[in-house]
Write a protein that binds this DNA or RNA. Sequence first.
DNA 1: GTCTATAATTCGATAGAC
DNA 2: GTCTATCGAATTATAGAC
Lengths: 183, 183
Amino acid sequence: MRRSSSETKAIVLAAARERFAADGYERATIRAIAADAGVDPGQVMRCFGSKDRLFAAACAIDLNLPDLLGTPSGEVATALVRHFLERWESDETLQILLRTGVTNAAAAERMRTVFVAQLVPVAAALTGDPGGAPVRAGLVSAQILGMALCRYVLAIPPMVALTREEVVEAIGPAVHRYLGLES
Amino acid sequence: MRRSSSETKAIVLAAARERFAADGYERATIRAIAADAGVDPGQVMRCFGSKDRLFAAACAIDLNLPDLLGTPSGEVATALVRHFLERWESDETLQILLRTGVTNAAAAERMRTVFVAQLVPVAAALTGDPGGAPVRAGLVSAQILGMALCRYVLAIPPMVALTREEVVEAIGPAVHRYLGLES
DNA sequence: GTCTATAATTCGATAGAC
DNA sequence: GTCTATCGAATTATAGAC
């Protein structure tokens, strides 16, 4: 079959995201990704140059937070948790970062950037204590990433069984407190 | 040099723990472990048979919780967090499980066992709601593992900078609530 | 128990015909 | 753009001399 370059790239990229999300960086081989995509392994190299650049492309999606400054302070935490749950289940980007950030330095760096850099301004804007914002953002990240780790990666049964809204109700209050919002 | 078999095993095992904890399963090679231990790569195979069995030996340490049933309910959560922090920083066992459980099925299974099986009885004994114990144990696991992920693996700066007691103060209340203990 | 040599795979990456 | 063939390096694992 004959495809355009951009078509092939898109097909390979989709397969790469699934593999990276499922197996991590090292175990997701070019050959396996190519087989999933139904293309020749050489094509993967031709389109992306190297495994590193393929990986960079696979987790280069924007991951912007919604505008939380307009929402009532009592609903900021639940909105935040709900947003991350939705993101986690709608595409594999966060799965990839969590699964590979443990052994891949580039993914870990990106994880730090995504979570801290985006949460620090939110934490700073919500409380009267801008100096404590980095710590607050770190604690929020810890709570959300820990939930994702247990629910999506380790697949701890009672965590998998929870509905999305049950997760929001369960960890929302802790996130609320970490953000420095009084009840 | 000439050593007894058990001596060599112990030396290799110590090096293997550090490598698995630092690099994860795939990137921790037999050769690197042998080099760290100052022995021949062939010796590692001779003593442990395969990389899989070496890995199994490296994370086969008991990880028992302290007896929390005697402590006042107001201090259970902080004692729990303090215990895990101490365990995390005293040896590499938990580091290994967290770093490898993301891509290695055996490590993930062991992680589930360690955390859930040990926390469920605690949660069940502390509250009058034994049916909710698995979920409570899962939420506690999520909070503690998320903290460890951000502090020890992703090395998010503000989380690394916290002292051990500051971590206890920060996430203790959330753990307290997840355990079903009223304030 | 120690170590050298090597087998047997597997991987990322390249070259080149069509 | 597609594909075959293959290189070079790295890995786990084995065989056997000392």
